[in-house]
Write a protein that binds this DNA or RNA. Structure first.
Lengths: 182, 182
DNA sequence: TTCCAATAGTTGATGTGTCAATTAGTCTGA
DNA sequence: TCAGACTAATTGACACATCAACTATTGGAA
């Protein structure tokens, strides 16, 4: 896959290196900042917030576990562990799916509603002040477009976590990315 | 701090929500993808690679631990734990600083040089193909500029990990961010 | 010169994500 | 209707980041 055993590597020039380091620092630092804001201003971590927020935008505030994981771009097991903790906190509840005996529906509880309502203004205000206010609409569009393309390119390489199965040959039963050439 | 006890929250419209979810998915997914590439194509994780790469660009391939942590935007303790593992692998070595009895210098070993040389082409090729090739130079500039501004805005709130001390009042001895109003 | 606050780095406990293995339920075809 | 492959979700072991507490050293002010 890496046909780069020779001196043919296209190294980064100074400008590119700067762009790359900025990007790297950003992707490492932003998730932590997001979580700090959430924990400081609410009773939720950012991942908990995201789960509740996703559920709350659903007609019944209820969702299949697998769909929820897919929507968030997470592995099933990550969600499962998190659900255990969140159920213990009382913000969600798990119930067997009527349609599929294997499935679990995740449901928002009253306490979950209260938590997300309390946390939402702070979260949205933070996002607004931090990502939208400093950028023009045109820049926002470029940003989204650029990140979408980068993400797509990574998915082509089979290295994007959530996007397994897009081009997996049938019979590849891995729960993660498929092996294109195996 | 959150003067938002009323209905005054400026919620996100559909377009903004889309931009935000794209950004959120990106910052969650990209670090993992970066690490997968590193582990797949080399004997290093992405954080190990970053340490070795930073050291290798230094005159003596040697750096104070604290400076290294600051350069990477990490907490000291994170680096310390990582150094323990990397020293065990033999890619770096720690030696007492001549100038400051408290300090430790981190030094690249021969094995470390070999590891970074072996990993670099794959890493750089990945970065090139995934972030630079899909973007025009103009887009790259917008991206860097946008992320820099977002990062600066977060730092103003004291929520960016690495950037403590920028505006801390003297006497604030926290090793993390300062409390602006305390 | 002697304190005492500040700084450099380490350590251990804790929380959370990842991976591989496992359990349970569904679906297809013979 | 039964066997085997597939899918949904969970579990436990492990790796790593974070936080707070700690040790050692420095440096300035009394």
């Amino acid at each position: 896959m890496n046909a780069d055993n020779s001196q043919s590597t296209r190294w980064l020039d100074e400008r590119e290196k700067q762009v790359w380091l900025t990007l790297r620092e950003f992707i490492w630092g932003f998730p932590a900042a997001l979580d700090r804001q959430a924990q400081r201003d609410s009773s939720l971590s950012i991942v908990e917030y995201s789960v509740l927020s996703t559920l709350s935008e659903t007609p019944e505030a209820r969702m299949r576990a697998g769909d929820l994981a897919a929507e968030l771009g997470w592995q099933r097991s990550r969600l499962s562990h998190l659900m255990g903790r969140m159920e213990a906190k009382g913000v969600v509840e798990r119930m067997h799916s009527d349609l599929d005996g294997r499935g679990q529906d995740v449901v928002l509880t009253d306490a979950g509603w209260a938590a997300i309502r309390a946390a939402a203004p702070g979260h949205v205000t933070f996002v607004r002040e931090v990502v939208f206010d400093p950028l023009t609409p045109a820049e926002q569009d470029v940003l989204e477009s650029a990140l979408t393309r980068i993400r797509a390119r990574i998915a082509e390489d089979g290295l994007w976590a959530g996007s397994a199965g897009v081009s997996c040959p049938p019979g590849n039963s891995s729960q993660n990315a498929c092996e294109p050439g195996a």
